[in-house]
Design a protein around this nucleic acid. Sequence first.
DNA 1: TGCCAGGCCTTCC
DNA 2: GGAAGGCATGGC
Length: 284
Amino acid sequence: MKVENCEFENINSFELKDIFECGQCFRWHKEEDNSYLGVTKAGVLKVKKEDNKIIINGYVDENVNFENFCKHYFDLEKDYDKIKSHLSKSDEVMEKAVNYGKGIRILNQDPWEMLISYIISAANNIPRISKCIYNISQRFGKKIVFEEKDFYMFPTPKELLEATMEDLRNCNLGFRDKYVYNATKLVFENIVDLEAIKNEDYKKAKNDLLKIEGVGSKVADCILLFSMQKSEAFPVDTWIKKIMNEVYIESKDVKKINEFAINKFGENAGIAQQYLFYYKKNEA
DNA sequence: TGCCAGGCCTTCC
DNA sequence: GGAAGGCATGGC
């Protein structure tokens, strides 16, 4: 492990609260000085924003190129201003949602971690999902000490393979224990190759993820959007169902809503979804 | 107490 | 192929 730091200036659309509290990640927490601390695949990161400067400190793996990792993780190569102005022209509700979540960036997280995290998310709420993920990290992941505090890496497939069904139940996963247990085996044995799936196009990748027990349309879309750079993936959960029904399309059929949205919002449907989700859950 | 949470799977028409 | 019920657990 090594200590690292880097800075980025004049990045548009970058607000810590919007990025870390819009529901896409479960391992970031606000500190007293308004910075955010989080555990990523590279290690522990601390992010601050001062004026138009983003300052990132890290305690990360020796082999990580820190600046490149941050650039990718925070999706800094993408022009969100352009996407926002395009989406805003769509309609009034979208314009409001974009304005509400104007500092959102979609993080590029670890596919394996997203697979397990979103299996756990089914019929669950965000605080409890975070607790579940902390529990399995604390019991099966590597411990890191950073700034005199203990952090736990998300366990690798090999590490999580050590967990029995009972262990997982003790991490408060509830009925999702068996799905996590089976998915871990599939990934460890490379029957499910997440890196290969990541390289496929959206439809094929989604189709492959749906073969995993515990992964349905919504969970698959979250994995695709938050860790596989498939920005057209449009996860339909209960909140999105509500706002879509109110504004765009009256239907109980999740598949219909999903297809409608991809047609309407196109290649950035997933980013549109995140603005809508954040807006509906907190404001509307 | 009853309902809901970033759903999915199985069963039953 | 579409609707209904079950599934753990905690917060409100």
